[in-house]
Computed example of a mutant assay.
Amino acid sequence: TNKAAAHRNLRRCRNNRRLRVERVFLDRTNPLEIYRDVELYKRFRFTRDTLQFICEICFDVERHTNRSLPIPVALSVCTYLRYVASGDLQLTVADSTGLSQATVCRVCAQVSAILAAKVSDFVKFPTGIDAARVKQGLGAIAGFPNALGCIDCTHINIKKPNENVEDFIGRKGIPTINVQAICDADYKITSFTANWPGRTHDARIWRNCELRNQFENGQHAGLLIGDSGYGCSRYLLTPYLRPVNQSEDRFNRSLCRTRVMIEQTFGMLKNRFGILGRKIRATPTRAVQHISACIVLHNIGIARNDSVEIPEIDAYEAAQPVANPPDNVDGRAMRHFITETYFSRM
């Protein structure tokens, strides 16, 4: 009896193995076709025209395969934009897009890689006519002369890395990447460096920046405006820590009203891309890729007049004095020259 029961169980198991499991193909709709303009912007942080432009840039993301239906480019792009705009887990994004978590992970890696590779096309430091336009635009804000951009750093939270953890622990005790950026009068980012761990000081990032070498070699005729976290030099001006007369005080006020634009640019970035304001749950290498992709997307939005609301930031509270590296002689001389030439007769 026991032997017969064992044979019956064996036959039952073999029959179960023969049963065919039907594969379920989720409906991969095109978000550009099912959402209205307002709904598109709320979900993906860009207007319809800009979304179509981004899809044209990322046309290589679609892979043709014989195993299943390929994911449309529009769905891939919108999935990545939903991921960086919300800052949610990939599983949450997967539930809202009808894809699996593994597919969302692959799509985000592909789209971010394509966008990060476009940095040289959308992030350019101004030269020639563009430099003159930037100087005019920044000068119109607070009367600061010959300015080519505003420079500062911001910390982007990342998950705890597996190696060299202490290098990434910033001043708030959490792992971050310290991102240096320069913006113009339109809040467009014209240069950035995003490969330094959070423990690195702003001044060190600038000392090792290729753009600094270009200024040292005289390739750019103009000035950068920074806070007291940088040392004052002949091409990077910082405020007086202790102004002693009205001319120096006017210099500081003009510099602060201009320099606040980089703080507002960082605010626009983090408002549009929630992943930058919350935490990038990825390795440092992949986090840098996401940061680069978001900056490219930010500049695309600025160029197409598709920008988010500019945050209100107090120019003087944002420029609180910090321990700064020592100024050099040329920097003090340039700052004094600018002060006496433009701010002593107001």
Rank of each mutant, 00 (worst) to 15 (best):
H290Q: 12
R259W: 04
V260T: 09
I262E: 06
L269V: 05
V244W: 01
T283M: 08
I262T: 09
V288N: 09
T283K: 14
L255T: 04
S254L: 01
T285N: 14
N245A: 08
C256L: 00
V260C: 10
T265P: 04
R242I: 02
F251D: 00
L269D: 10
L241W: 01
S254P: 01
T285G: 12
N245M: 04
T265E: 05
L255Q: 13
M268G: 12
V244T: 14
I280T: 04
T265D: 07
R281E: 14
I291R: 15
R257K: 15
R278C: 01
I280A: 08
T265A: 14
I262G: 12
V288G: 07
F266R: 06
E263N: 09
L269E: 05
R272P: 06
A287H: 07
F266K: 05
S247A: 15
T258G: 11
T258V: 11
V288R: 02
R272A: 10
S247F: 03
T285A: 15
I280K: 09
C256D: 06
L241A: 13
T258M: 11
R259K: 11
N252P: 04
R257E: 12
L276T: 01
A282C: 06
S292K: 07
A287Y: 11
E248H: 06
I280M: 07
M261K: 13
T258S: 12
P284H: 05
G277R: 05
H290P: 06
L241D: 10
L255N: 09
P243Q: 08
H290I: 15
A282F: 04
I262C: 09
R272F: 02
R281M: 06
V244C: 13
T265C: 15
V244P: 00
G267C: 08
E248L: 04
R281T: 06
L241S: 12
P284S: 09
M268I: 03
G274F: 02
R281Y: 11
L241T: 11
G274K: 04
R242N: 14
S292G: 10
E263D: 11
N245D: 15
S292Y: 01
F251I: 00
R259F: 07
F251A: 00
R278G: 02
R257V: 00
N245L: 05
K270S: 14
Q289E: 15
L241K: 12
M261R: 14
Q289P: 09
I291G: 15
S254M: 01
S254C: 10
K270T: 14
T283F: 07
R242G: 03
Y240M: 01
Q289K: 13
L255A: 10
